[in-house]
Amino acid sequence: MTEAWNEIADIQPTIMGMLKNGMLKNRVAHAYLFEGEKGVGKREASIIFAKSLLCEQQIDGYLPCENCKNCKRINSGNHPDVHLIEPDGLSIKKEQIKSLQEEFSKKSVEANRKIYMIFNADKMSVQAANSLLKFLEEPSSDTVAILVTEQIQRILPTILSRCQVLSFKPLSPAVLKEKLINQGVNIQDSSIIPHLTHNFEEGIRISNEEWFAQAQKIVVKLYEVLNQNPMKALLYLQEEWFVHFKEREQMDRSLDLLFLIYKDLLYIQLDKRELAVFQNKTGEFETHALHLSQRRLADCMGYILEAKRKLLSNTNPQLLMEQLVLNLQEGSSFV
């Protein structure tokens, strides 16, 4: 019964702690703004908070029982006192807010509160935002508003000032890795992806890309070519690298992957092998790590970060990669 709440509390302990304390102390705000990037639990927290507020058999004064009539109706999306608003097309329109206001002028049907949630609140039209503002200025004692957004900077300051703003943190790499593994993503991808995104949904999408699977192989192969036959590295760029990494965004991802290889070497040197992401290459990397000073390793990582910076400043990607390879070649051959 408490699993859903605890699952969100594991990844957003501060947020869920504040909501819990508000309920226990009977200090529930009339309006909340849940803000943070996609995939960090904002929608899930909104739903479970609504269930907590309306639950007929709360556990410990704040946990929804999941079995009462109110919990079940919220789960099925048809509770008459819980209203969800999402963009109609590209925006949330004034008519949607007006309809909400009319609905909330009536007494609660089944519960002691009425709750409305506005998802993608940053997509309200100017007219809709102004209508909502009037609604927020004269809050009813039995009404709770939950606005949800990924773009807090697009919310009117006057609306922000009338909400309790709760900022959801990005998922930690460890939490995201565990969630990916639980979804059946293999160990290596689950280790690498959290270093590329904090977003669970994007992580799943990346794990399903054949392009990403091939990208890993090509990046590892470049590293191996650099170490086995540095003179062939420039040729490898032409034959394999530029064929696969065509767009600037793809090139940026390739540099992220290359950086993770050198980071693995550093973890091996520091005897923290469990933190390495290319677990299937640990044996090979251990041999390489023995031949590199930490100073040289730091230089290589610096070259890659500098290449990423130059990529953003519209440096020619081909020239950039050729220069990077020349920088990484220095003292890189172990044969």
Score class of each variant (00 low, 15 high):
residue 188 Q to K: 15
residue 188 Q to L: 12
residue 188 Q to H: 07
residue 191 S to G: 14
residue 191 S to M: 12
residue 192 I to L: 10
residue 194 P to S: 03
residue 194 P to F: 05
residue 194 P to V: 02
residue 197 T to D: 02
residue 198 H to D: 09
residue 200 F to N: 04
residue 201 E to F: 12
residue 202 E to H: 10
residue 204 I to L: 09
residue 205 R to P: 13
residue 206 I to T: 04
residue 207 S to Q: 06
residue 208 N to W: 12
residue 208 N to F: 07
residue 211 W to Q: 03
residue 211 W to C: 00
residue 212 F to V: 03
residue 213 A to I: 14
residue 214 Q to M: 08
residue 215 A to L: 08
residue 216 Q to I: 13
residue 216 Q to Y: 08
residue 217 K to R: 14
residue 217 K to F: 11
residue 218 I to F: 06
residue 219 V to P: 05
residue 219 V to T: 04
residue 220 V to F: 05
residue 220 V to M: 10
residue 221 K to E: 14
residue 223 Y to I: 07
residue 223 Y to G: 07
residue 224 E to A: 11
residue 224 E to N: 10
residue 226 L to V: 06
residue 227 N to R: 14
residue 227 N to T: 07
residue 228 Q to V: 08
residue 228 Q to M: 11
residue 228 Q to T: 06
residue 230 P to G: 13
residue 230 P to T: 03
residue 230 P to W: 03
residue 231 M to D: 15
residue 231 M to N: 14
residue 231 M to P: 11
residue 235 L to K: 14
residue 236 Y to T: 01
residue 237 L to F: 13
residue 239 E to P: 02
residue 240 E to W: 08
residue 241 W to N: 00
residue 241 W to D: 00
residue 243 V to N: 09
residue 244 H to F: 13
residue 244 H to K: 15
residue 245 F to C: 04
residue 247 E to N: 15
residue 248 R to I: 14
residue 248 R to W: 09
residue 248 R to S: 15
residue 249 E to A: 13
residue 249 E to C: 11
residue 249 E to K: 15
residue 250 Q to R: 09
residue 251 M to G: 14
residue 253 R to G: 12
residue 254 S to G: 13
residue 255 L to I: 07
residue 256 D to F: 10
residue 256 D to I: 11
residue 256 D to P: 11
residue 256 D to G: 06
residue 260 L to V: 09
residue 260 L to F: 06
residue 263 K to Q: 15
residue 264 D to C: 05
residue 266 L to I: 12
residue 266 L to H: 03
residue 269 Q to R: 07
residue 269 Q to G: 05
residue 271 D to P: 11
residue 272 K to R: 15
residue 272 K to A: 15
residue 273 R to N: 14
residue 273 R to M: 10
residue 273 R to V: 15
residue 276 A to Y: 02
residue 277 V to E: 01
residue 279 Q to P: 06
residue 280 N to F: 11
residue 283 G to I: 11
residue 283 G to F: 05
residue 285 F to D: 00
residue 286 E to H: 05
residue 288 H to V: 04
residue 289 A to E: 00
residue 289 A to I: 01
residue 289 A to D: 00
residue 290 L to D: 10
residue 291 H to I: 09
residue 291 H to K: 11
residue 292 L to S: 00
residue 294 Q to I: 03
residue 294 Q to V: 04
residue 297 L to S: 01
residue 299 D to L: 14
residue 299 D to K: 10
residue 301 M to Y: 00
residue 302 G to D: 03
residue 304 I to T: 01
residue 305 L to A: 07
residue 305 L to D: 05
residue 306 E to K: 11
residue 306 E to A: 10
residue 306 E to L: 03
residue 306 E to P: 00
residue 306 E to F: 04
residue 307 A to M: 04
residue 307 A to I: 03
residue 308 K to H: 05
residue 310 K to S: 08
residue 310 K to A: 12
residue 311 L to F: 02
residue 311 L to K: 00
residue 311 L to E: 01
residue 311 L to S: 03
residue 311 L to W: 01
residue 314 N to S: 07
residue 314 N to K: 10
residue 315 T to H: 09
residue 316 N to S: 09
residue 316 N to H: 08
residue 319 L to Y: 08
residue 319 L to N: 09
residue 321 M to S: 05
residue 321 M to P: 15
residue 321 M to C: 05
residue 322 E to Q: 10
residue 322 E to S: 01
residue 323 Q to M: 13
residue 323 Q to N: 13
residue 325 V to R: 00
residue 326 L to T: 07
residue 327 N to Y: 09
residue 328 L to M: 06
residue 329 Q to K: 14
residue 329 Q to N: 11
residue 330 E to A: 09
residue 330 E to Y: 12
residue 331 G to Y: 02
residue 333 S to R: 12
